[in-house]
Design a protein around this nucleic acid. Structure first.
Length: 346
DNA sequence: CGAATTTGACCCGCGC
DNA sequence: GCGCGGGTCAAATTCG
């Protein structure tokens, strides 16, 4: 299987660096309702001779970032190819031993949290998993019908944060805590308490996600999924591994509060959104809505203009690509999504 | 005082 | 069949 058939390695950051900067037409900043200070900066940026030097530097920086992005894309492609090669090898081995497996039915290997810690597998009630091992994945089609969606998100958190709070927008009630064998951090179990009939549960061994971007990514990944398992990665204690299963039977609290609009639009409350195409794991980071959800209402119309969008996109992309936390989280999110995509396609 | 959290006990699936 | 370990329950405790 060609990796390109199942994963789009391009990171569509919607960055077109030169469109605004080289634009001959002055931008009517007033029309976009920019703050005075920002308007001045924005206009000066286009008109003052000193800005040319800055423009050149920015172009250089953007070229550098673009090149870096290209290299990362290549690396990701290679990684996918290697992954598929390994997978094919495993499938070959499986096919050789498959007859025996079929005669004895699927493995009765326990789907426990122990496996979560050991090989990052998560399962509840025999449902499928977002990131099962290849061996397990190969057996999945022979198993019972998938009853609920499972999604995993990897989120880097602050090392010192030990609170058991996940700020994903839902209301959770803790109903248990357990010290597991392979992970020193206690695992907490939560149920969604926003709606009485909501079957959502979650468990985790880590804490809150303070980084706004990561929180929004997590919210997107999980906003309509039902059971969430979040625990600290055993390999990297700063990484939060969140797994959601199933779907909430109620709207996201923030959405319900807003308008009671469709649950299928979880990003409506996430000004900085990460969208994933249903056709594949191509990730689009909509960086143009950078305000918090609280003030998004007032700012949204002002950021619709393509020039302003570009300007904001450039600024945010520049700062974000320099942020190691963001790049690490993005890589983690992509890897998690890739695993999910692999599973859903097999 | 009600809601939320804690925590020990219990249940159940899986490996041996 | 037994023991282990994860998941859940529910009484006790804490918190606002």
């Amino acid at each position: 299987m060609d990796s390109s058939s199942w994963v789009d390695t391009s990171l569509d950051l919607n960055i077109n660096p030169l469109r605004v900067i080289k634009s001959d037409a002055p931008v009517d900043a007033e029309r976009f309702g920019m703050p005075r200070k920002m308007k001045t900066t924005f206009l000066d940026f286009q008109t003052k001779p000193s800005a040319k030097k800055e423009t050149g530097a920015l172009e250089e920086e953007l070229n550098r970032v673009s090149e870096e992005n290209r290299k990362l894309t290549e690396m990701l492609t290679v990684m996918c190819e290697n992954y598929n090669a390994l997978r094919n090898q495993l499938m070959d081995c499986m096919s050789k031993n498959g007859e025996k497996e079929l005669l004895h039915g699927p493995s009765k290997k326990r789907k426990s949290a122990g496996s979560i810690n050991n090989d990052n597998n998560i399962a509840v009630n025999g449902n499928s998993e977002s990131s099962s091992t290849d061996e397990e994945l190969s057996k999945k089609p022979r198993e019972e019908v998938i009853k609920a969606k499972i999604c995993r998100a990897y989120v880097r958190t602050e090392a010192g944060d030990t609170s058991l709070i996940v700020k994903d927008g839902y209301q959770w009630r803790k109903y248990g805590q357990k010290v597991t064998r392979d992970n020193p951090s206690p695992r907490a179990y939560f149920k969604c308490s926003f709606a009485p009939s909501c079957p959502v549960k979650k468990k985790f061994q880590l804490s809150s996600v303070e980084v706004k971007w990561l929180r929004r990514m997590l919210r997107f990944f999980c906003s309509h999924l039902c059971l969430v398992q979040v625990q600290r990665s055993i390999d990297d204690q700063s990484v939060l591994v969140a797994t959601y299963e199933g779907e909430h039977n109620h709207p996201h609290p923030s959405m319900e509060a807003a308008s009671g609009s469709s649950r299928g639009l979880p990003l409506g409350s996430a000004p900085c959104s990460a969208s994933l195409a249903s056709s594949g794991p191509a990730i689009t980071l909509d960086l143009t809505k950078s305000k918090s959800s609280n003030d998004a209402k007032s700012s949204k119309p002002k950021t619709d203009a393509p020039e302003v969008r570009q300007f904001l996109v450039e600024q945010m992309a520049s700062s974000l690509t320099k942020d190691p936390n963001f790049t690490a989280a993005l890589a983690a999110a992509i890897s998690g999504r890739m695993l999910l995509q692999n599973h859903t396609k097999w």
